[in-house]
């Protein structure tokens, strides 16, 4: 762990009224690493994800991001255009509901190509072949490229969202329950796909999930949250096989066969 971190949160605090959503949270993420944030609903997982990705400002604390040129940026002090550029190039965001991210009135190819065009790609042929390539990588049939997303199944929509996000080769992707709402066999295929893509492209991922099995399958490290605090953090296998905090023990024991 001598390598410098890609993303660091220090002393993050955020309250919604009297409810502490984040309390003294410190997070570190190294390049190419997959960090799972687990906990029951209401524990502050998604809030932490939104704060880390600059979409929600904390009451106090700082989020640092190291860009490819090795410069450190305070995510919440960045000018809006710079943050926007980051979000559409170096970063990606995968929502639980793909409809939040996809444009449902635009064809699959247009959806995949949008980030490229936003970055200034102006060659139709190149954009189209990139879209075809990415549809293949996420196992969507190439002849669906001109179909509207509303004709796609839930699993296909989620894969399309992943293609749309990864097309610009981001270094860091935030995922919010990417497998939520999918049936078990589709979930398994999607997890497999995410794991192989992320490993091959060496993408760092912050993954929010309530599903311990998903965390075990994908994540290198895990952080367990309870009432806005990170109560335990460490290597995934270590934490899940030998949970030390009572809440983690409860969480692990409540899963049938994680």
């Amino acid at each position: 762990m001598t390598e410098p971190t890609l993303l660091s949160g220090r002393g993050l605090n955020l309250t919604f009224g009297t409810i502490p959503a984040l309390a003294d949270v410190d997070v570190d993420l190294w390049p190419g690493e997959m960090l799972a944030i687990v906990g029951e609903s209401g524990s502050g997982k998604t809030t932490l994800l939104n704060v880390l990705s600059g979409r929600l400002a904390p009451d106090s604390g700082t989020v640092w991001y190291r860009d490819p040129a090795d410069r450190l940026h305070d995510v919440h002090a960045m000018p809006a255009p710079a943050l926007r550029t980051l979000h559409r190039s170096d970063w990606g965001f995968v929502h639980q509901d793909p409809r939040q991210n996809l444009r449902m009135t635009v064809s699959a190819g247009g959806n995949v190509g949008e980030r490229l065009m936003a970055q200034g790609a102006r060659h139709y042929g190149d954009i189209r072949s990139a879209a075809l390539d990415w549809l293949e990588q996420v196992e969507i049939d190439a002849n669906r490229i001109d179909d509207l997303p509303r004709t796609f199944s839930g699993g296909m929509l989620q894969r399309l969202q992943i293609a749309r996000t990864l097309v610009t080769h981001p270094r860091l992707v935030f995922m919010d329950e990417p497998t939520g709402g999918l049936d078990v066999s589709v979930q398994a295929r999607l997890l497999d796909l995410i794991r192989s893509l992320v490993t091959r492209l060496r993408i760092a991922v912050v993954l929010v999930t309530h599903d311990i099995a998903v965390a075990r399958l994908l994540a290198h490290r895990i952080a367990v949250m309870q009432r806005g605090r990170i109560v335990e953090t460490g290597l995934t296998d270590q934490v899940l096989d030998d949970p030390r905090h009572p809440y983690t023990q409860l969480l692990v024991s409540s899963v049938l066969n994680a």
């Binding site: 926007r84 247009g110 190509g113 936003a118 970055q119 954009i127």
Partner: peptide, 19 residues
């Protein structure tokens, strides 16, 4: 407009060409 974020307009042109 403020952020000069005009990828969406090109998506419209892309859709035209593909259709």
């Amino acid at each position: 407009h403020g952020l000069s974020d005009y990828g969406l307009m090109h998506v419209k042109l892309y859709e035209d060409i593909s259709r």
